Simulated assay, not measured.
Amino acid sequence: MAARASKTVIYAALLGNTLIALSKYGAAWLTGSAAMLSEAVHSTVDTGNQALLLYGLKRAARPADAEHPFGHGLQLYFWVFVVAVLIFGIGAGLSLYHGIEKVRHPQPIENVYVSYIVLGLAIVFEGCVWVVAFREFRRSQGNFGWVSAIRRSKDPVVFTVLLEDSAAMLGLAAAMAGVFLSQALDLPVLDGVASIIIGLILAITAAFLAYEAQSLLTGEAMAPEERAEIRRIAALEPGVVGINEMLTMHFGPREVLITLSLEFSEQLSAIDVQNAVSSIERRIRTAHPEVSRVFVESQSLLAHRTAALARLPQTADARSQNLAEAPSETATKQRLQ
């Protein structure tokens, strides 16, 4: 359901930006407006970005194989990062270039009414696409603010389109103001200033998207409250006396890996431990359907810390000292996290 919703948002943005880009190029040719040309480039980049997001969704949906045993979900995060680079490199770069050139060599805008018509239509089209993206975003936002919801989201498609469209609406407002003021005040240089403002808006948007994409691409954990709930599920299982370690990682919006190192009661048989592990996995997947894999390790706290210390790059003397300071088996029975 979430994947279909993401595609609906992308298709709406793709259609809208294609129509808007064509109209803006025509208006830029007729008027000679640098701000209009920057907006045309902006819409072209957005159109290409939507195509890349669709491609990323297709690549991420491929099943796991021998070379990618955890699936291809990270492909989506990679293509979102590419989108951010394109917004910055092409959209922001060309807008800043055209704006600076227009400031250096200002020229009056011709057929200014064409700019008003096209910008007005673009605001209507972009507004419709923005509403579609905003509604989908609100469904997953919960009680968090905009920035918090974006930072917590592991599905970047909807908020990427929403941020692009928000930047587009701000860019259109800047272009409209630039065209109006350059004509009303007879200062063609203001058209170039508007183009520079559009470039800065795109640069800020790209930087934020790139930051979020790299965080997802390098492996984000589940949200803190979700991790706490998984710990609670494991701790409530009969026979579990301690949680040594829990690691989680998103390999995609709906692909989560969980590893648990648990200490079980010595009174449990091997079959009892096996049944407890199966029960924990089942309850975790019921509570969190996005969890695709759960790995549970049965290990005492002392054995877990011994293994952890052995992995550290230490000298033999330091490792022996750390092992001597590790808690005893009796101490491990007194804890339950």
Results as ranks from 00 to 15, higher is better:
Asp155Met: 00
Ser269Glu: 08
Leu14Tyr: 02
Ser23Tyr: 05
Val118Arg: 01
Ala34Gly: 04
Leu74Met: 14
Ile198Gly: 01
Val129Asn: 11
Thr8Gly: 10
Glu229Trp: 10
Ser148Pro: 01
Glu263Trp: 04
Ser279Tyr: 02
His304Arg: 08
Ala223Trp: 13
Ala174Pro: 00
Gly89Pro: 02
Gly178His: 02
Asn244Tyr: 00
Val296Thr: 15
Leu76Phe: 06
Ser292Leu: 09
Met246Cys: 03
Thr47Met: 13
Gly145Arg: 07
Met36Glu: 13
Thr18Met: 13
Trp79Phe: 15
Val103Ile: 13
Ala27Gln: 07
Arg285Ala: 09
Tyr211Asn: 13
His304Ile: 07
Leu217Ser: 04
Gly192Ala: 01
Asn322Arg: 10
Asn143Arg: 11
Ser292Arg: 12
Ser265Phe: 06
Arg139His: 14
Thr259Ser: 13
Ile90Trp: 07
Ala270Asn: 13
Leu76Val: 05
Gly239Asp: 01
Val294Gln: 02
His98Pro: 01
Asp165Phe: 01
Gly56Cys: 05
Asn275Pro: 01
Thr332Ser: 13
Met222Leu: 15
Leu14Pro: 03
Thr18Pro: 11
Ser265Pro: 04
Arg4Thr: 04
His105Phe: 13
Glu110Arg: 14
Asp317Lys: 12
Ala276His: 00
Tyr55Trp: 14
Arg4Lys: 14
Val147Pro: 00
Phe81Lys: 10
Phe251Leu: 02
Ala326Gln: 04
Arg59Gln: 15
Ala21Lys: 01
Gly142Phe: 06
Ile100Ala: 15
Ser182Asn: 07
Gly192Tyr: 04
Val241Asp: 03
Val291Ser: 05
Ala235Thr: 03
Val294Pro: 02
Ile280Val: 10
Arg138Met: 14
Ser6Asp: 12
Phe295Met: 13
Glu281Val: 10
Leu54Ser: 09
Leu119Phe: 09
Gly199Ser: 11
Val273Ile: 15
His42Gln: 14
Ala5Arg: 12
Pro313Arg: 06
Thr315Val: 03
Ala175His: 00
Tyr11Gly: 00
Leu216Tyr: 07
Leu247Phe: 12
Gln274Cys: 11
Pro63Glu: 05
Val103Glu: 01
Phe295Ala: 12
Leu181Glu: 03
Ala34Phe: 05
Asp191Ile: 09
Val240Ile: 09
Met1Glu: 13
Gly192Met: 10
Ser140Thr: 14
Gly89Ser: 14
Gln337Trp: 13
Leu187Met: 15
His250Val: 00
Arg285Glu: 10
Gly145Ser: 11
Met1Lys: 11
Glu297Pro: 05
Asn275Lys: 12
Ile150Phe: 06
Lys24Pro: 03
Gln141Leu: 05
Arg311His: 07
Glu110Thr: 07
Val273Trp: 10
Val291Met: 03
Pro69Gln: 02
Val273His: 05
Val256Ile: 12
Glu67Arg: 14
Cys128Gly: 14
Ile258Cys: 06
Ser292Gly: 15
Val240Phe: 03
Pro63Thr: 00
Gly91Glu: 01
Ile90Gly: 11
Leu217Phe: 06
Ala184Lys: 09
Met249Tyr: 00
Arg4Gln: 13
Asp191Ser: 08
His68Leu: 04
Leu14Glu: 01
Ala303Tyr: 02
Glu281Ile: 06
Gln50Tyr: 08
Ala34Met: 08
Gln214Phe: 10
Phe208Lys: 03
Thr47Tyr: 07
Ile196Pro: 02
Leu121His: 08
Leu181Val: 04
Ser320His: 11
Ile198Leu: 07
Arg283Thr: 04
Glu329Met: 11
Pro327His: 03
Arg4Ala: 15
Thr47Leu: 12
Ala331Pro: 05
Leu301Ser: 11
